[in-house]
Design a protein around this nucleic acid. Structure first.
Length: 298
DNA sequence: AAATGTATCAACCGCCCCCAC
DNA sequence: GGTGGGGGCGGTTGATACATT
């Protein structure tokens, strides 16, 4: 990101040479648009996957993410994330902030709080998800990645949902909310103590969402069931950390370490090495080869 | 064809940090 | 140690293109 020395602008220089811009503005223009080594085309699938994977580690550290994508600026990455990838993930039922499937978040709420609180919180959360997901479903059918996500593969729920009237969609949401509340409050078996979405507890292949909780979601390939059965595309499999959420703790720990150590070059360098080790391992979350790390993260 | 809605992305803003003085 | 300039960065805005009604 740095264009120090070679292309730096003194703040008043641009005015001195007659530009109606400040130096900072010129520098940004150069950095984000004029630089000859920049790519201006569409993001490739592999670039998108890289962004999602790195975002799951770094969060909104766009400059760090962009450092791994030659020819892309932090602004490019940020814009692409905000305009496309966030929606794409939401459309797949994955929370773009935590990178967990919405269903997992809901289940976690249910297991960590007492039933009355859980019901309220879960409903509130569902309301948030509803806004994002329903917006997508009602405004624009989601492209589930060429063929592998055809509506046929999804069953009838997807097309039924998209085609139904608005009030019917609300009714669907209400049904989900009702089922959720009911499940939490009345069925002790609905949320087993050994979390089935935890790969330590069971294999993802055995995973099954609690009865009646997310009837619509599961039809959209949004539950881990679909991922584990190989229906989802490679893209969705790689971006969804849901089937492998045990690695989430690892991510959090790494993130915390990065937070604590960022700013100290020597420590950061060590962390980069550790990070590279994680990437080069068989860690199921990122499956991003160490060779894919183009620049050391500083 | 016009009006309206939506998506995209370059540019801007404000905060923070670094560094020279 | 204090100060000001410059640069990095993430969040947000606004202009424009495109799509839909």
């Amino acid at each position: 990101m740095s264009i120090k020395n070679e292309h730096s602008f003194r703040l008043d220089f641009a005015y001195e040479i007659g530009l109606q811009r400040c130096g900072k503005s010129c520098r940004l223009r150069w950095t984000n648009y004029l630089r000859p080594d920049l790519k201006h085309g569409q993001f490739s699938d592999s670039e998108e996957q890289t962004i999602v994977k790195l975002h799951s580690v770094f969060g909104n550290r766009w400059s760090l993410i962009a450092a791994q994508l030659p020819g892309r600026t932090d602004n490019d990455v940020k814009n692409h994330w905000n305009t496309k990838l966030k929606k794409k993930l939401s459309g797949m039922g994955i929370d773009p902030v935590t990178h967990k499937p919405f269903s997992h978040l809901m289940a976690e709420i249910a297991t960590t709080l007492a039933p009355p609180q859980a019901a309220h919180l879960a409903e509130a959360a569902l309301g948030c998800f509803k806004d994002e997901v329903l917006h997508l479903l009602t405004k624009k059918p989601i492209n589930f990645h060429q063929g592998q996500h055809s509506t046929a593969a999804l069953g009838n729920n997807f097309t039924d949902y998209v085609n139904c009237k608005p009030d019917e969609k609300d009714a669907t949401v209400e049904k989900i909310k009702f089922d959720l509340s009911k499940a939490i409050q009345h069925d002790p078996e609905i949320m087993p103590a050994n979390k089935p979405w935890d790969s330590n507890a069971t294999t993802s292949a055995n995973f099954a969402m609690p009865y009646g909780v997310f009837p619509t979601m599961s039809g959209f390939q949004l539950s881990p069931v679909s991922f584990s059965k190989g229906h989802a595309s490679q893209w969705s499999q790689s971006v969804c950390t849901g089937s492998t959420c045990t690695a989430m703790d690892q991510q959090i720990q790494l993130h915390e370490k990065l937070e604590a150590e960022i700013g100290d070059d020597s420590e950061a360098t060590k962390e980069i090495r550790n990070l590279s080790n994680i990437f080069s391992s068989d860690c199921v979350v990122w499956d991003l080869p160490a060779d894919d790390l183009i620049n050391p993260v500083v």
